[in-house]
Design a binder for these strands. Structure first.
Lengths: 205, 205
DNA sequence: CTATGTGAATTTATTCACAGCA
DNA sequence: TGCTGTGAATAAATTCACATAG
C-alpha cells in the first residue's frame, strides 16, 4: 500500500508516535514493538502498524522497530527533518507559555522571532529571542521563517494573519478563537481551548 | 435519524457552531441559514444540516434557523445548559492565559477555583478567584466542581490527575504533553500544542 | 420558490485475521 | 516462534440529490 494516499488521521497520529518514541529513547530504549508503543500512546497496535504501512517497511518481523530509525523516518515524512524556524506573534501570557515550552525541540521547531505591539516589551529578550515590534513582521520573508504562531487577542488576529501572509509565511498555528481568512494555499490549524473544553460535559454521565 | 447514535465528529463540531452563533447573535442577527453559518465556520452546509438532523428539527424550511433557539438546543445536547464549575490547576503563564480567556462564557464555564504550589502565588487573587495550595485539591468534591484544567509542568501532571480523581472530578482538559492515566470512566481531552504544530510542515509544499 | 431534513451513495478510516519473514 | 505488514471486511463519516414543508 506504500506511498499511495496517506489518511489525514494517520498524519494527525504521527507526531504523537514521535513524542512517544522521543520519550522512550530518553529512557534508554532502542527497540520497541507495535504493542509496547501502543500502550505508550494509547492507540491500538494494528492501527500503528497500519499507519506505518502507508510509508514502507520500518520494522523487523519478529523483533519490532528500531526507535532511532523509526523516529527519523517519521520526521522525514512530516518534513521535520530540517530545523524549522518559527515566529511567535503576541508575547502575552499565552505567548510566554509557548515560548517557555520545551516540547518543540522534539519536532525540530525553533522559535527564532517574537513580536508584540506593547512598547514595554519590545526590545526585551525571552529565551534569547528579542521581542520586535509588530511592524517588523514584513521582514520575516527574508529570514527563512515559514511558520508562525498567532497568540494575540481575538480582534487583532486577522490583521496579524494578513501581515504574515504578506511576509510569505506558509503555515499558521492560530490560538485565537477567531476564524482567520487566508489564501487557501496557506495551511492554518486553529486551536481554541474553549471548544475542546466544551466537548467534555457531553461525555460526562 | 433522530436521537440515534451521534457521530463523534458531530460532537466535535457542535461547539464550533455554538461559537459562530454567539458571534452572530452579538452582531444583532436573529436568523441564519445553513449556508450562511457554513461560511462563518468553514464547514459545508450539508454537513451542518446533517449534524443537526441527528437531534431533531431545529430549523424552518424555506427560512433557516432561529439563532437563539438553535444555540439553546446545542447547549442542551452538549450539557452546557447549566453553568459548569471548573477548576484550574497551575497558574503559570499558560494557566494565567486560560484564566484571562473570555471565551469560556459562551459555553457556560466558570473557573471557580485555582491551584498552584508556588507559595508566592497562593492567597493572591486572579479574576476574583483566590489561588489555593495544591494540597487543597481534595476539597473540590464538596464544591460542586466536576471539571478541571491541568496546566502544570509535565512532571507534575500525573500527580495532579490522581488528586483530581480522588476529589471526584469527572472530566479533565490536559494541557501537559504527557499521557495521563485515569480510570476510564473519567474523560480526558489532551491538547499538546507541539503535536498540532508538528502537522503543519506536512501540509506545506 | 427557498432552505431544511434525510435516505442512499460514496468516500474515508478502523479493525480483523493471517500470510510472510527474521 | 513472535511480530510485522497488509489485503479484505467492517464501521464511520461525508457528500449527494431530492422529497418535503413553510
Amino acid at each position: 500500500m506504500r506511498y499511495s494516499k496517506i489518511p489525514n488521521e494517520t498524519v494527525r497520529r504521527l507526531p504523537v508516535y514521535l513524542r512517544g518514541l522521543a520519550l522512550m529513547s530518553r529512557q534508554g530504549l532502542s527497540s520497541v514493538s507495535s504493542s509496547k508503543l501502543a500502550d505508550f500512546v494509547s492507540v491500538n497496535p494494528w492501527q500503528i502498524r497500519k499507519d506505518f504501512s502507508y510509508f514502507g517497511d520500518f520494522g523487523t518481523r519478529g523483533v519490532g522497530y528500531n526507535i532511532e530509525n523509526l523516529a527519523r523516518q517519521i520526521k522525514k515524512i512530516l518534513k521535520l527533518d530540517t530545523t524549522r524556524k518559527t515566529a511567535l506573534v503576541g508575547v502575552g501570557n499565552l505567548g510566554s507559555a509557548i515560548m517557555a515550552y520545551t516540547g518543540f525541540g522534539t519536532y525540530g521547531f525553533q522559535i527564532t522571532a517574537a513580536f508584540d505591539n506593547d512598547p514595554a516589551k519590545i526590545g526585551r529578550k525571552m529565551n534569547d529571542v528579542a521581542i520586535e515590534s509588530i511592524s517588523m513582521l514584513d521582514t520575516l520573508g527574508k529570514r527563512q521563517v515559514d511558520m508562525a504562531i498567532i497568540a494575540v487577542p481575538e480582534q487583532a488576529a486577522q490583521d496579524v494573519a494578513n501581515a504574515l501572509v504578506r511576509a510569505g509565511i506558509k503555515g499558521i498555528l492560530n490560538f485565537s478563537p477567531r476564524r482567520i481568512v487566508v489564501p487557501k494555499k496557506i495551511k492554518v490549524i486553529t486551536i481554541d481551548i474553549a471548544t475542546d473544553l466544551a466537548r467534555l460535559p457531553y461525555y460526562i454521565p
